[in-house]
């Protein structure tokens, strides 16, 4: 991520914002993938760090091999589906806890991604030689394409999670026991969710590789954290604007909005001439704060400390009456 940001030419904030928005859109798309597992299936899937890079590696190598970039992008998505299938099988068929299954897949994907890139950790894709789907050479166009792809994906997800099958995925995430009792094959549904999620993540990785003009073995590192950041920022904003009245389509849209805002914050941090090497620390801080806010908010409303303080006057009255010998 750091090298991606370094690639942004240093100018003033305004000239850099559109670049932040276009990258934010791509990360927002990735966050939609994380949303499927983290929010709908209630599983923290760490394989995304690997499948994002897989998407990038596949699109670059297939484009170099002579495939049209749009077709390479679709095949990159398919590679993500397969990565998700591996995590799904490890989890649902071999009984490995979801978090560990994700870590194992991510770990293995490092080698796989290196193999895909011909044992090189970095492969470039010259924008002037290929008809890229999206590129930082033309940022307004990149934003337009990012918005169109996001809108299409959100529409598809909205439709899908309203279908019988999508409802079964949601039901499995909310109540596994009930889903089994209603005849839903929950292990297979979990695999399905992980497959879809990683497919989306790899699609985002493929777009990112084209956008920046190269695929890097480390380009997916921290994806899960960025995805969580986008989801949480989006949810907080959504609740603030719509006062709990967010329907599913708006929630999905705000995941992408969360990705954009996250990236704008990153651009501002860089603009403040903070060390890009500290970006991961900042990201972790942001995610920590946003994850902690709902919890702490609840705590302040409902804390033993405050209850103890409120009880003092009553307790005082009792001890006073004892002193008076009542």
């Amino acid at each position: 991520m750091t090298n991606i940001l370094c690639a942004i030419s240093l100018g003033n904030l305004v000239t850099r914002l559109p670049g932040g928005i276009s990258q934010g859109l791509i990360w927002g798309l990735m966050a939609l993938g994380v949303f499927i597992t983290f929010r709908i299936l209630d599983v923290a899937d760490l394989s995304v760090d690997g499948s994002f890079a897989t998407g990038g590696a596949v699109v670059v190598m297939l484009s170099i091999a002579g495939l049209p970039c749009w077709l390479a992008t679709i095949l990159a998505l398919v590679s993500g589906l397969l990565a998700g299938l591996v995590t799904g099988l490890l989890h649902a068929k071999l009984g490995i806890p979801a978090i560990l299954a994700g870590i194992l897949t991510q770990f293995a994907l490092y080698s796989v991604n290196l193999r895909i890139m011909g044992m090189s950790s970095n492969r470039s894709l010259n924008p002037s030689q290929y008809k890229l789907v999206i590129s930082m050479r033309n940022i307004p166009k990149a934003i337009l394409i990012g918005v169109i792809i996001s809108a299409v994906i959100i529409a598809i997800l909205y439709w899908y999670f309203g279908t019988e099958q999508g409802s079964a995925v949601r039901a499995t995430g909310t109540n596994n026991e009930m889903s089994l009792a209603l005849g839903i094959n929950t292990p297979n549904i979990k695999i399905l969710g992980l497959v879809l999620s990683n497919g989306l993540v790899a699609l985002a990785g493929a777009l990112m590789a084209q956008y920046q003009g190269f695929a890097d073995i480390n380009m997916g590192r921290g994806s899960i954290v960025i995805g969580l950041a986008a989801i949480i920022i989006g949810e907080i904003l959504c609740d603030a604007i719509f006062k709990k009245g967010c329907n599913f389509a708006i929630r999905l849209s705000f995941v992408v909005v969360g990705g954009i805002i996250y990236y704008i914050v990153m651009v501002i941090i860089l603009w403040l001439r903070l060390d890009p090497n500290d970006l991961k620390l900042f990201t972790a801080l942001i995610v920590t704060i946003f994850l902690a806010i709902p919890y702490l908010k609840g705590k302040t409303k409902n804390s033993f400390g405050w209850a103890g303080k409120r009880s003092q006057k009553y307790a005082q009255a009792i001890s006073n009456s004892f002193k008076k010998g009542v």
Partner: peptide
Amino acid sequence: ALARRRGQRRGLRWGV
């Protein structure tokens, strides 16, 4: 609607 599809294949028709 989930209960109504008990034991049926859950495809891509509308959930409700």
